[in-house]
C-alpha cells in the first residue's frame, strides 16, 4: 500500500507491506535506525517515536496507520548537528551508557517537557516509566531532565569521597 508520511519535516511516499509495523518502516523503509527494537511487544519503550504530537511505541503501530501523519524520531532531535537542550543535558549528566534505550528515552522526555515544562522528580519518573533502561539505573537520566527543565540545583548528583 502507498503511504505518505512526514518524518522529521521531510515528506516520504512509500509502498509498504500491510503487516509492517511503523518501527519496521522507519528502520528498514527509511533507514532511520536510531529508533530501536527492544521487545517488539510494547513493553520496553526503545521504539518510542512521536506520532502527530503523541508518543507511541512504534513496534505496536502499523505503518499504514501512519498514512498522512507527522512523525518525529530521535534523528529529528538535534538541529543541524546541534544537540537539543535535552540531548545536551543527557550528555552532561552521563544519562547514556550503552545508548540503546536513549532514542526512545529522549522522545519520552521531550513529550513530558512539552506537557510539563518543570516536572517534579516523581513526574519525571512517571514520564519515563515506560522506557526501560538496564544500564543507568535512571538516576542520572532524572538529573538530566531536571537540568534540561531549568532545575539544575535539584539535579546535582555527587560522588562522595570518604
Amino acid at each position: 500500500m502507498l503511504i505518505s508520511v512526514t518524518v522529521n519535516g521531510d515528506v516520504f511516499e512509500r509502498e509498504v507491506e500491510e503487516h509492517w509495523t511503523l518501527l519496521r518502516f522507519l528502520r528498514d523503509g527509511l533507514g532511520l535506525t536510531g529508533t530501536k527494537e527492544g521487545c517488539g511487544a510494547g513493553e520496553c519503550g526503545a521504539c518510542t517515536v512521536e506520532l502527530d504530537g503523541r508518543t507511541v511505541n512504534s513496534c505496536l503501530a502499523l505503518a499504514v496507520e501512519a498514512d498522512g501523519a507527522s512523525i518525529r524520531t530521535i534523528e529529528g532531535e538535534a538541529d543541524q548537528g546541534r544537540l537539543s537542550t535535552i540531548q545536551a543535558a543527557f550528555a552532561r549528566h552521563h544519562a547514556v551508557q550503552c545508548g540503546f534505550c536513549t532514542g526512545g528515552m529522549v522522545m519520552s522526555v521531550r513529550d513530558l517537557l512539552q506537557r510539563n515544562p518543570r516536572p517534579t522528580v516523581e513526574e519525571i519518573k512517571e514520564g519515563i516509566e515506560g522506557n526501560f533502561c538496564r544500564c543507568t539505573g535512571y538516576e542520572q537520566i532524572v538529573e538530566a531532565v531536571l537540568d534540561a527543565s531549568g532545575q539544575l540545583d535539584a539535579a546535582k548528583g555527587v560522588l562522595r569521597h570518604v
Binding site: 528498514d28 535506525t33 532531535e77 544537540l83 540531548q87 552521563h94 545508548g99 536513549t102
Partner: peptide
C-alpha cells in the same frame, strides 16, 4: 562527558542490528 555519547544521543550510533 562520555566520548561516544553524542552519536548515541542523535541516533547516529550504529549497532549490529542496524547493518544492512
Amino acid at each position: 562527558p562520555r566520548v561516544e555519547t553524542v552519536e548515541k544521543l542523535t541516533g547516529d550510533a550504529l549497532y549490529t542490528g542496524d547493518l544492512l
